[in-house]
Amino acid sequence: MRLGVFSILGLLFLSLAVMTSSAQADGVPTPQIPKALQKTEKGHAELMRRNHMDLMLHKRDKTVHEGIRGKQYSLKACVSCHAVPGPDKQPVSIKSPKHFCRACHDYAAVSVDCFQCHSSKPPSSAGLVNLLEGFLKR
């Protein structure tokens, strides 16, 4: 009886771990974050991990209302550099659990509203496909 309960719990835990495709560190599952296509400046990951929502929000209002279109903190730049290749070697969309944004947001159970309107894939261009191919060969 008790064994049964334990094994069910164990199975549940296991499937949970598989579902979130998380790496085990110190027994705590952590999200598996896909690598970016390009190396960036020092401190980028730390800064963005905590502040991406605020930085992007600020950037968003500046872009929409004032037409300021630098690439820094732009969603387009994010999804471009953080594109994740799918089985067809094309960048996956937000529908795939492998999408960069979903890796963390699924784990933290925070819904992302951006991609109802915004494209979750990099703007299509030959340059990016080349880049992805280079990345895959790496």
């Binding site: 990099p122 703007p123 261009s125 340059g127 990016l128 080349n130």
Partner: peptide, 9 residues
């Protein structure tokens, strides 16, 4: 190098 190839940038 990266961005120069992307259309729209």
């Amino acid at each position: 190098n990266f961005l120069a190839g992307i259309a729209g940038m």
